[in-house]
Amino acid sequence: MEVGIVAQRGNARAARIADGIRDRLRADGVTVRLDAATAADLSHSGDPIETFDRSDLVVSIGGDGTFLFAARGAGGTPILGVNLGEVGFLNAVDPDDAIDAVAAEAAAIADGTAEIREAPRLSATVGDWTSDAATNEVLVQGNRRGPGAGIDFETRVDGSLYSSGHADGVLIVTPTGSTAYNLSEGGPIVHPDVRGLLITEMCATGGMPSLFVDQDATITVTVTGTDRAIVASDGRLTHPIEPPAEVTITRSDPPLRIAGPTGDFFEALGKLS
């Protein structure tokens, strides 16, 4: 049994919790690995986050941003989130309960009794390039936003034209990501148990309202009207493209796998107000 731990960088409390979890798991006979930044905070040796897909469980200690970082390396490995953030849609474990909760989840995974939830992730393809998997959203955007910037676009769903016009960009969003960038751009909130994907245009002229489509739909965004644009995964990993270009967004495998207790989605929503 092996558990990987990722703590929010520069957060002393997160590092202390990570150290406590590490000590408890090692006492239970579990192999523990720390990501490089967490290990540095604790003066231990660490491993690249990209290798955590070899673990049986990944523990994220921090806010949703830390969870997204952990998800980049977890692959299909279940992730348990300890919430040190303000809202915590992805993190359901209270920090005061973290050591016992992680130990219990590790034991449940080891004996095959853990209940793991799945959520879709997305990938974008342009030519022979494919993005890393996105937990929240894929963004297709001009090189900058604002007056005189943006992209001309056509958005198609399974080959059928849905919308066209001019916009700062287009977001393709999972239910998990509906409360993130999508919400700030005026997109609707989607309950995480609903299966589908959102298309939300950013400051569009001549566009359409947000559209919810089947999670297995193939969405293409054709970009023209500018000499430079980008594709971004979860707001972190960006890739430049040279229009005219066609970006294809589909559900990717493996899905996000979430371990541990289920948080109260509506309680977390209340923290947004």
Rank of each mutant, 00 (worst) to 15 (best):
residue 11 N to Y: 08
residue 14 A to L: 02
residue 16 R to K: 15
residue 20 G to S: 11
residue 20 G to H: 06
residue 27 A to L: 10
residue 32 V to N: 01
residue 35 D to Q: 12
residue 42 L to P: 15
residue 48 P to E: 14
residue 51 T to R: 10
residue 59 V to K: 00
residue 76 G to K: 06
residue 79 I to A: 10
residue 84 L to C: 06
residue 89 F to C: 01
residue 99 I to M: 10
residue 104 A to C: 02
residue 107 A to F: 06
residue 112 G to Q: 02
residue 114 A to N: 05
residue 114 A to S: 13
residue 118 E to L: 10
residue 121 R to E: 02
residue 124 A to M: 07
residue 127 G to M: 11
residue 127 G to Q: 04
residue 130 T to E: 05
residue 133 A to R: 11
residue 137 E to Q: 09
residue 140 V to S: 04
residue 143 N to E: 14
residue 145 R to S: 15
residue 146 G to V: 15
residue 155 T to S: 05
residue 159 G to K: 08
residue 161 L to Y: 03
residue 164 S to K: 15
residue 167 A to T: 06
residue 168 D to Y: 05
residue 170 V to L: 13
residue 171 L to N: 01
residue 172 I to D: 00
residue 176 T to A: 12
residue 180 A to F: 12
residue 182 N to P: 11
residue 188 P to V: 13
residue 190 V to C: 08
residue 191 H to R: 07
residue 198 L to P: 02
residue 199 I to E: 01
residue 201 E to S: 08
residue 206 G to I: 09
residue 209 P to G: 09
residue 209 P to E: 03
residue 210 S to H: 08
residue 212 F to Y: 11
residue 213 V to P: 06
residue 216 D to M: 11
residue 227 D to I: 00
residue 233 S to C: 15
residue 236 R to W: 06
residue 240 P to Q: 07
residue 241 I to W: 12
residue 256 L to Q: 02
residue 263 G to L: 12
residue 265 F to C: 05
residue 268 A to R: 01
residue 270 G to A: 14
residue 271 K to V: 00
